[in-house]
């Protein structure tokens, strides 16, 4: 089994099992607030023939699946892998919340509904 696993990089780095340690994990923005979960990964092959993670697909896409469709990659919400700063039991990123296109639903609920109810922008308590 061990000879099938890629070797650790010579300097630093660690081995991460994508299925075990990445898929369905929570993603956090730069302030530590939750920002959807990892639905899938978009891999790219570089010139040396090595696979690297290019983007993270946000959300499970279960709703479209449920209705019998498979959304093409181009329409899925993704996040560039280079914003990921740490992989632990969550994915820490330095993404600025308001700049993440995938969170448009959250912004819609915030701007159209919750902010319009009196007290919606008050601190708790």
């Amino acid at each position: 089994m061990s000879d099938r696993l890629p070797r650790h990089p010579e300097h630093g780095g660690r081995l991460i099992d994508a299925e075990l340690n990445l898929l369905d994990r929570q993603i956090l923005d730069r302030d530590g607030h939750p920002m959807l979960a990892v639905g899938d990964l978009v891999l790219e092959r570089d010139d040396d023939g090595r696979w690297t993670i290019d983007r993270v697909i946000l959300g499970s896409g279960l709703t479209t699946r449920f209705f019998g469709a498979h959304r093409p990659l181009a329409t899925r919400d993704t996040l560039d892998w280079h914003v990921v700063t740490d992989v632990g039991y969550v994915l820490n990123t330095d993404a600025e919340r308001d700049e993440v296109a995938a969170l448009w639903r959250e912004r819609w609920w915030r701007d159209q509904v919750i902010s319009k109810i009196p007290g919606g922008n008050h601190d708790p308590g």
């Binding site: 993603i27 959807l36 919750i114």
Partner: peptide
Amino acid sequence: IAQFAGWPWGKRLRPSQAPQFHA
């Protein structure tokens, strides 16, 4: 529901910071 979907949640945030949770 918020934890399943990965939305911000909780009474410790302003409602506008956790809009789907409050919805």
